[in-house]
């Protein structure tokens, strides 16, 4: 331990080290402060203003009060919560299943499946979205063709134009673009579980379900927590799919908070109002993440 061997390190040395460290940090801090911290504070600051193309007037909490009386916001909030509540558990469970089904196979097989499930992420939101839009098309789409030729439906469905289906189409596409990263993480976490523990349990006659539940699951808990948090953050911010597929329609049935923020800021130029919604979204996400930490953190100790 070279560090503790010099307990009486002089102040001069410590100051020098601090100076050197900040010199190394400087380029990074310029970008971080300039393009993350500053806009964050601007977001918070302007949320207390009536801020449009022409006005800039302090109005206190007025934006926040209005938001909760804004029916479109409440619809968008409901849709966003629906997306999160459906997609987070399905993404987690599905990716855990895929990962546990592939992680013990031969290297090339594991890597093949890992790549395949990552493909929609790499392909890019826009490319993925336009092809789905084509497949969902009422007249030339693959879905209607397959379903009507197998007699599941007798009339072509306007998937994205129908209030009942549109949000589920979005959730499905979001699912395909969300599971890539969790699978990669789970494969690596499962591979890191100490195999001797599992083998010892097997010798003692534990079933594979017990092995999973008693040994692997507690070991991969930190990964699960991380996956829950990133999936929640991403689902709450669902935007590109909405903007490209439905523009929030039909009748706001696919409007999400993030899309509504975009709409408010860029179609009607109410920046202050949009930023206030952004702050609320950030708070909601923070609360959800904290809850996940608490729930998964306490179950770990049991």
């Amino acid at each position: 331990m070279a560090k503790s061997a010099a307990p009486a390190r002089s102040h001069v040395l410590a100051r020098r080290e601090t100076f050197v460290s900040y010199m190394f940090l400087l380029p990074c801090l310029v970008f971080f402060v300039g393009f993350v911290i500053v806009p964050m504070f601007m977001c918070l600051f302007t949320s207390f203003f009536d801020y449009t193309m022409t006005d800039f007037e302090f109005i206190g909490l007025q934006n926040y009060i209005e938001i909760f009386q804004d029916e479109t916001f409440l619809i968008a909030l409901r849709n966003t919560v629906l997306i999160v509540v459906v997609s987070v558990p399905t993404v987690c469970i599905f990716s855990l299943w895929v990962a546990s089904a592939i992680y013990r196979r031969k290297g090339a097989v594991t890597s093949f499946f890992r790549c395949v499930f990552y493909l929609p992420v790499v392909t890019g939101t826009v490319a993925v979205t336009v092809v789905w839009k084509w497949m969902f098309n009422q007249y030339y789409g693959l879905f209607n063709y397959v379903l009507s030729s197998t007699n599941v439906i007798d009339q072509n469905i306007s998937w994205l134009g129908d209030k009942r289906f549109a949000i589920w189409c979005i959730i499905m596409i979001l699912f395909t673009t969300s599971i890539g990263q969790p699978i990669v993480l789970y494969v690596s976490a499962l591979g890191n579980v100490d195999n001797s523990l599992v083998e010892a349990a097997e010798v003692d006659g534990a079933t594979s379900f017990q092995c999973f539940w008693k040994i692997k699951w507690p070991n991969i808990m930190p990964t699960t927590l991380y996956i829950l948090v990133i999936t929640t953050i991403n689902s709450f911010q669902c935007f590109a799919l909405i903007q490209l597929l439905t523009s929030g329609g039909p009748m706001n049935s696919t409007n999400t908070i993030m899309y509504y923020i975009y709409d408010t800021a860029f179609k009607t130029n109410q920046y202050g109002y949009a930023n206030a919604m952004g702050i609320i979204l950030a708070i909601i996400i923070a609360v959800f993440s904290a809850l996940q930490f608490k729930v998964t953190g306490s179950s770990k100790k049991d």
Binding site: T18, F32, S289
Partner: peptide
């Protein structure tokens, strides 16, 4: 690898920022 003044606070700041929704700051940006 270094020990310097403000290290812990700075690192927590980086981690906290990462947990925030990136898209929210796009309008002020």
């Amino acid at each position: 690898k270094k020990r310097f003044f403000g290290q812990k606070i700075l690192f927590s700041l980086f981690v906290c920022a990462m947990a925030l929704p990136k898209q929210v700051i796009l309008i002020p940006l």
